[in-house]
Simulated scan of single mutants.
Amino acid sequence: MTSPSSTPSFDAPYEGDLRADLQLALRLADAADAASMSRFDAADLEISTKADASHVTEADLATERAIRALLEAERPTDSVFGEEYGVTGDSHRQWIIDPIDGTANYLKGIPMWTTLIALSIDGVPRVGVASQPALGRRWWGATGLGSWTNTPAGEPKRLSVSSVGTIAESSVSFQSIGQWRDAGQLDALERLTSSVWRDRGYGDTWPYMLLAEGRLEFVAEFGVKEYDIAALVPIISEAGGRFTAFDGSHSLSDRSALATNGLLHDDFLQLLHSV
């Protein structure tokens, strides 16, 4: 992948046509949904522990394999970076996959988990799909093509971030106190929660999608990997928001994420980093 120092802005324009890639990403999500839902809430679900003490289920592995099989058939020259099987290939086009974001929820039978699929080109996420099949929800976007979600009527709805223009009127999601404590940012969290209208820890992918829908103004977290956030970038950017690392840089590898409605991005950065 392109190094953070040479990565352009996440919202930089792109001259290519991404429609075929977005359609493929949606088909990848269909294949992933079939694999993940086939074992969701199964009494005999196989669960193991990885070296970092996090859990992995048979469904995580099967879902990533389903995505990789379709990519091998249709984009054999592209690189793939998945949470469970690492990196294969060497290309400026890289598919970044989190087969089940929220494995702890999945293995408990809690429906708040998501498959995340992104296409990064020259280090910038250009296509993103976030699919929550247990809840029947999906969000998708690509540079220049807008960002969208499904509706009960079956018609896609274009997403747009909120027009809230002051921090005092903002509703924010901070994920968890433990994350901010471990990152040495409890003082920043206190400044944030003391300055906004409403704060909650909704967790994982969902708050980012609430932001893209115009229901939140700010989401931030720490300890994330590239596959946790790459798919979120084009969805939020195309909805009119901004996505950076916590320090304001455009890096997938910073292990942090900060997303806003765009209007308040600089104000939030100033608040969080004031001494």
Rank of each mutant, 00 (worst) to 15 (best):
8 P>A: 12
7 T>Q: 00
138 R>M: 14
159 L>K: 01
101 D>F: 05
31 A>C: 12
142 A>T: 01
117 I>S: 09
200 R>P: 10
122 D>E: 02
172 V>N: 04
201 G>D: 10
167 I>L: 09
239 A>D: 00
2 T>E: 00
20 A>E: 14
210 L>H: 13
209 M>N: 06
38 S>P: 03
140 W>I: 14
247 D>M: 11
222 F>G: 15
221 E>I: 12
112 M>G: 07
143 T>W: 03
138 R>Y: 07
231 A>K: 03
36 S>M: 06
60 D>T: 05
53 A>W: 13
243 F>Q: 00
225 K>E: 11
213 E>G: 09
224 V>K: 05
87 V>G: 06
69 A>V: 01
93 R>I: 15
5 S>G: 03
14 Y>M: 10
4 P>R: 00
41 D>L: 03
256 S>H: 08
158 R>P: 05
258 L>S: 04
58 E>Q: 15
219 V>A: 07
56 V>S: 15
149 T>P: 11
123 G>Y: 00
115 T>L: 06
221 E>V: 04
86 G>T: 14
39 R>A: 07
178 G>L: 15
43 A>S: 07
77 T>A: 10
206 W>A: 13
43 A>Y: 06
90 D>R: 11
221 E>Q: 11
237 S>Y: 06
195 S>Q: 11
23 Q>V: 14
153 A>M: 10
88 T>V: 01
20 A>H: 15
262 G>M: 01
85 Y>M: 08
1 M>Q: 10
179 Q>C: 12
179 Q>G: 15
218 F>E: 01
45 L>A: 05
21 D>S: 13
92 H>C: 11
38 S>V: 04
229 I>Y: 01
68 R>E: 07
35 A>I: 00
267 D>R: 11
178 G>Q: 12
136 G>W: 06
116 L>H: 10
238 E>C: 14
145 L>F: 05
115 T>Y: 00
48 S>K: 08
268 F>N: 02
204 D>L: 07
130 A>Q: 14
20 A>V: 00
110 I>V: 14
35 A>L: 09
157 K>D: 14
55 H>K: 06
56 V>R: 12
7 T>F: 00
149 T>E: 12
149 T>Y: 03
152 P>A: 06
20 A>F: 10
89 G>V: 07
96 I>C: 13
131 S>D: 10
21 D>C: 14
113 W>H: 03
261 N>K: 14
229 I>K: 01
10 F>N: 06
140 W>P: 12
41 D>S: 13
183 A>I: 07
127 V>P: 09
65 R>N: 12
96 I>K: 06
94 Q>P: 04
257 A>M: 02
208 Y>S: 05
248 G>S: 03
253 S>I: 03
77 T>Y: 09
173 S>N: 08
54 S>I: 07
242 R>L: 13
153 A>W: 15
153 A>E: 12
227 Y>R: 04
57 T>Q: 09
168 A>H: 10
76 P>Q: 13
198 R>L: 00
241 G>R: 01
193 T>G: 11
226 E>S: 03
70 L>M: 05
16 G>V: 03
75 R>E: 02
